[in-house]
């Protein structure tokens, strides 16, 4: 299937269950307010994904997960596939500021939402995020494969206010498996970054 080239299979589009005008005004329902993806004859859908602040128009098989859209279509390979079934956390990204598993999220379902991946975490000048620096300083990883997911989860963990104690951090980071078992150092990294994030 073509990924980014538009209009390969014609103009027959139907818009399903368009958002009702009344609902569109409610701020809490950004997803509902956004136009639904449009469907082509072939069954492919045109979808616009907003990733790291940029809109990306794509034509996707509706079965494409957000993870596969990021990796195979947008070539943002920082988000990792570790299980593809919601059991490891390596694919963790933020959707509208909340950490979610991109492997269990359909790409078409996040049209209208803001997706942030590990590639979008660094500052505009390229400076690494305090959480990224803390992972480096504390050796909060070994092979590094789960690390993007750990860091996305860790940033959310602090923002949610779940980084109060070592025990709380460990509990709220338990959805991110690290087979190299850097866990105590991940906790240490989050404690280091917590202060900087709260100040900054």
């Amino acid at each position: 299937m073509s990924t980014t080239s538009p209009a390969a299979d014609g103009p027959t589009r139907r818009r399903l269950f368009e958002a009702a005008a009344g609902l569109a005004a409610a701020p809490a329902i950004a997803q509902a307010a956004a136009p639904a993806p449009t469907v082509r004859k072939s069954g492919a859908v045109d979808v616009v994904l907003n990733v790291n602040g940029q809109d990306h128009p794509l034509t996707l098989d509706p079965r494409t997960t957000l993870l596969d859209a990021l990796r195979e279509h947008l070539h943002l390979t920082g988000s990792k596939k570790g299980c593809d079934q919601g059991q490891c956390g390596a694919c963790t990204v933020h959707v509208d500021g909340e950490r979610v598993l991109s492997c269990l999220t359909l790409a078409v379902a996040v049209q209208g939402a803001k997706v942030t991946t590990i590639e979008g975490l660094a500052g505009p000048n390229g400076a690494v995020h305090p959480m990224q620096q803390a992972f480096i300083d504390n050796d909060g990883f070994q092979c590094g494969y789960c690390t993007p997911g750990q860091i996305m989860s860790a940033v959310a963990c602090v923002k949610e206010g779940h980084a109060g104690s070592d025990g709380e951090i460990a509990e709220y980071m338990s959805g991110n498996l690290c087979r190299c078992a850097a866990y105590p150092k991940i906790v240490a990294a989050i404690k280091q970054a917590r202060g900087k994030m709260e100040r900054g």
Binding site: L16, L23, A32, A36, P37, G43, D61, P62, R63, L106
Partner: peptide
């Protein structure tokens, strides 16, 4: 399997 995707707003 292939499916069609629809959004229901209410």
């Amino acid at each position: 399997r292939p499916f069609s995707y629809e959004r229901a707003s209410d």
